[in-house]
């Protein structure tokens, strides 16, 4: 398969564009370098949402971040989803298009959740074929995000970082590193965060996500990625470690999808990310 075009590093700090903040973005100059939108929310035929996205696009670069491509589906990609994503991509001309290393559906049903991949050679082959198809259809390389997961499979043959590395090498795709997801999955499955970072092709990383999660409880041993609260110190520490290891600048954003606070609260978190990233650039 022909390798897709390259994606140049983008050094900036951004937020997810959510309905709660539409007026802020339309009526003021929000100090962000980009916004990220959930692709599927705008893969529609017309109306107010698309008009707002067009207006925000005039002010800020936009990243399209999908949740329903389902690149892990054994049955392949949904042609309707891909066609509508391509239409949106042509309209927005985004910095890049991203989705997740996961599957969401079978031919019969859609879970609307990011379900975990068995980390096997068979799954890797299926994922790479789907990524090849998506990148060919869009005519550009994509980014794929490491998911948070709540179980691993007895049949796993690779670690997640080995899977991601092979995936990037075989398809030419790039990586969206969700630091919170590494933190969550490392605790849920007992792997080393350091080993995870060291095992990734960090030169393929173009973006970092930071988010909050729901910690484990006495009755529930699993940490859940919820995007409904502030980033915790452990995730900030891991972010500092990751930015110090990355060989190129990347785009960093705060993800909040539930209990979304006023914009200043998210901007304060983004300032903290700026501070950490700038320290990482200071020579020791």
């Amino acid at each position: 398969m022909q390798q897709p075009s390259t994606i140049a590093p983008f050094d900036g700090f951004g937020l997810g564009l959510r309905r709660t903040h539409y007026e802020d973005f339309l009526e003021s100059d929000v100090p962000v370098d980009f916004v990220e939108v959930i692709s599927e929310n705008y893969m529609i035929d017309g109306g107010r949402q698309l008009r707002i996205l067009d207006q925000v696009r005039e002010k800020h670069p936009v990243i399209l971040h999908g949740v329903s491509m389902s690149i892990g589906s054994a049955g392949g990609l949904d042609p309707d989803h891909l066609a509508k994503l391509k239409r949106l991509e042509r309209r927005v001309d985004p910095l890049w298009v991203s989705d997740h290393l996961c599957w969401t559906r079978t031919s019969a049903h859609n879970s609307h959740d990011l379900l975990p991949m068995p980390l096997t050679e068979e799954a890797l082959t299926a994922v790479c074929a789907n990524i090849d198809r998506a990148q060919n259809e869009l005519g550009r390389a994509m980014l794929f995000e490491n998911p948070s997961s709540y179980l691993t499979f007895p049949e796993d043959e690779l670690s997640e970082w080995q899977f991601l590395s092979e995936m990037a090498q075989r398809t030419g795709c790039y990586l969206l590193l969700d630091v919170n997801n590494i933190y969550v999955s490392a605790r849920n499955h007992g792997f080393s965060q350091d080993e995870y970072l060291a095992g990734l092709p960090l030169d393929r990383v173009r973006q970092i996500h930071l988010a909050g999660h729901d910690p484990a409880t006495d009755g529930r041993p699993v940490i859940i990625d919820t995007h409904d609260r502030a980033v915790v110190d452990g995730v900030w520490d891991l972010y500092a470690k990751a930015t110090a290891m990355l060989p190129q600048p990347v785009a960093t954003m705060i993800e909040r999808d539930e209990d979304i606070p006023p914009l200043p609260e998210l901007l304060a978190e983004l300032d903290r990310a700026r501070g950490i990233a700038s320290e990482a650039l200071v020579p020791a």
Partner: peptide, 12 residues
């Protein structure tokens, strides 16, 4: 599947 997968499935 064992207990860890069962606990994870309840989250999904």
């Amino acid at each position: 599947w064992g207990n860890s997968q069962t606990a994870g499935m309840s989250v999904y």
